[in-house]
């Protein structure tokens, strides 16, 4: 699905990623853990195509496409989805209008017809149930006035609507209480299939009780320093990261 090879990236001349390698296959869930400042969120931003970062070396193959050659929206249209750590508020733009625009542009890119309004609304109704999102929220402006939990649920709702090949969840558990965490995780698990994959970026092991990873990677100082099975997360929770440095 995605193969990252020797990725180096910097911001304002400061190197954040220093030769990162990672391969995720279809049907897999990978967790990336690591201390603050290890470069976890940077990795997510770079994969999504944020222009603040400069890739200085390395390659990213996304299902046969050179990901780094694409602009942000084309990466999204190829099926890469980023659930933001801090979802952005867009005042005055309704969630529904936002998603329909996104969905139709993605479909257009793939040479598909625009989705009929009726089908779209049915889809909204169905998918919003998945994350127990109040139907009212769909007609409200994107993330505006949403609580922290609602914002994160809205991210997963959008993921359900856009049906990506690869979803990257950037600290989706931050700021969630246990109920919200369960709802968000259930949503993610329900969307899991043999044809898609998920990268979960998190600081805490707690989330991995709900979204069970096939692999756990530890990111430290811009590189993956250890990879293991899901039990590694528990070990990290117990011992911290210092023993890996």
């Amino acid at each position: 699905m995605i193969k990252i090879t020797n990725l180096h990236a910097s911001i304002n001349g400061k190197e954040i990623l220093k030769g990162l390698d990672l391969e995720v296959k279809a049907g897999e869930v990978h967790a990336i853990m690591g201390p603050n400042g290890a470069g976890k969120s940077t990795l997510a931003s770079i994969l999504a195509g944020r222009e603040d970062y400069e890739v200085t070396e390395g390659s990213v193959d996304f299902d046969g496409v050179d990901l780094l050659a694409l602009n942000t929206e084309d990466r999204a249209r190829e099926g890469l989805f980023l659930a933001f750590q801090y979802p952005v508020e867009i005042p005055g733009v309704s969630n529904v209008n936002f998603l329909r625009t996104a969905l139709n542009e993605i479909r257009e890119y793939r040479g598909q017809e625009q989705i009929p309004a009726k089908d779209f609304l049915a889809m909204v109704k169905e998918k919003s149930k998945l994350v127990e999102l109040d139907a009212g929220l769909a007609s409200r402006a994107v993330n505006e006035g949403f609580s922290g939990g609602e914002k994160k649920r809205n991210e997963i709702f959008q993921m359900a609507m856009l049906e990506p090949k690869l979803a990257i969840l950037d600290e989706t558990d931050s700021g969630l209480d246990i109920d919200a965490l369960r709802i968000v995780s259930n949503g993610v698990n329900a969307l899991k299939s043999d044809n898609n994959a998920t990268i979960v970026i998190t600081h805490y092991q707690r989330l991995l009780d709900y979204i069970v990873p096939d692999f756990v990677h530890v990111l430290h100082d811009g590189k993956i320093v250890k990879t293991g099975p899901k039990e590694l997360a528990l070990e990290l929770e117990e011992k911290g990261y210092d023993w890996l440095k």
């Binding site: 602009n71 929206e73 999204a76 980023l82 933001f84 867009i90 998603l99 996104a102 856009l162």
Partner: peptide
């Protein structure tokens, strides 16, 4: 805001 839209596939 623009980046958020781009990431959802909007030009």
């Amino acid at each position: 805001q623009i980046f958020y839209c781009l990431q959802r596939g909007i030009s």
